[in-house]
């Protein structure tokens, strides 16, 4: 399957996180899950489904979230030509 294997896109600082639920509430992809009324840190339940929009980082009242980009995005190796279609005659 596709996805940045093993990469965690949302780093939460355990020292400053106040487990307030806001990141869970604002994430548009249902990626961040926080148990209500719990002191446990939020869980990045579906890291491969992150849009890297940073709504969580922006909304965090404790400034405890950093969006971290994966290697696939920071140092992409796919040539753009491979996205522009291929010859249907050629079987691979």
């Amino acid at each position: 399957m596709s996805g940045a294997q093993g990469h965690n896109p949302i780093a939460i600082n355990p020292d400053t996180c106040i487990t307030c639920m806001i990141c869970d509430y604002v994430c548009p992809g249902d990626v961040i899950h926080q148990k209500p009324r719990s002191k446990e840190l939020p869980v990045i339940a579906y890291p491969d489904e992150c849009w890297y929009c940073g709504l969580c980082e922006q909304a965090c009242p404790a400034d405890a979230i950093t969006v971290v980009f994966p290697q696939e995005m920071l140092d992409p190796t796919t040539p753009v030509t491979s996205l522009l279609g291929r010859d249907p005659e050629r079987r691979t």
Binding site: A4, G29, D48, W51, E72, T78
Partner: peptide, 13 residues
């Protein structure tokens, strides 16, 4: 280019 389907210009949801 990144190969990550949710890394999209528009809203992936």
């Amino acid at each position: 280019v990144s190969g990550l389907p949710f890394d999209s210009w528009h809203y992936p949801y």
